[in-house]
Amino acid sequence: MIDTPTLLIPIDVSTSEDPPQTLVDLLEPLHIVVLGYYPVPNQTAPKHLQAAHEDEAKAAMEPVVRRFVEQGADVESVLVFTRDHITSIDRVANEHDCDAVLIPGSAEVTKLRNILVSLNDEESVFRILSVVGVLLKETDPSVTLHHPESIKNESAMSELMLRGATDWLSEQGLKRNRITWRNPTAETQPPDLVTLADEHEFIIMGEEKPSLAERVLGELPERIHDRTGRAVLVVRREH
C-alpha cells in the first residue's frame, strides 16, 4: 500500500512538448517529480551546455510544471544536463523515493477511456493496484486487468489473481463494472501486453522481473511505448 505515490515524470527539455490535459487530470492526485533532462552529446561538457541552454531548458520545463501545479498537484522540479539520461532518471528516482516512473506518451490522446493494468510483477501487485486506486478515485476511465501468466495457458493462478485484484479495487471504492479482464481459454488466446496496449490510452505496469542492470525503465515498457505511442507508468518495487 502506498498512500500518496510519488511519480517521476522525465521530460526531454530540448524537444519537449506539453503533456496532454487528459494525462494531467489523471495524474494530479499523485505527488509529482518533474525531471527535465537536457541531453548532452558525447565530447561536450555538461557545464558548457548548461551555460548555453539553461534558460531555454527552464522555459521548456515551466509550462509542464505549471500545468500540474494549476491542476492542484504537489510538484517538485528537477533539471539536469546529462550525458546519460537513463542514469539520471535512475538516480533522481532513487533520491526522491519515487514509487513510479512515467514514460510520457507520444500519441495524441483526447479522452482517456480505457487504462490497461498489467500485474506483471507479482512482488509489487499491491503497489500497482494502490496506484490504480488513487488515480481512478476521481476520474472515470475503465480498467482492463492483465496478468501475463494467462498468456501461456488457462491458469487458475491467473484467474485467482485477477479476481482478487478486482475485489481489492472495488473495496477501494471502484465500481465493479469499470473493471474487466479477459478470461483466458485455450481457444481465445488473449493477446500479449503490447497488442493489448494498443486498445488502451494509458498503461500501468510493474517493473520487469529481472530488472536489467538495475534500470528502472526496462526494455518492455519502452517497447510498448515505441510500438503504441501510449504513456506507460511503471510502478517500482519496494526498496
Binding site: G36, V40, N42, Q43, T44, A45, P46, K47, H48, Q50, E54, A57, K58, M61, E62, V65, R66, V69, E70, S77, V78, L79, V80, F81, T82, R83, D84, T87, S88, R91
Partner: peptide
C-alpha cells in the same frame, strides 16, 4: 574544440556525467 569525455576522464572525475540545476518556479497558484 573537444571536451575530454572519455572513460578515463569520467573515471578520474574530470567530467561529470550530469549536472543538476536548481529550479524554482513561482506560479503563485
Amino acid at each position: 574544440r573537444v571536451v575530454d569525455t572519455s572513460a578515463l576522464a569520467v573515471y578520474r572525475g574530470a567530467v561529470p556525467l550530469e549536472i543538476e540545476v536548481e529550479v524554482e518556479f513561482d506560479f503563485d497558484t
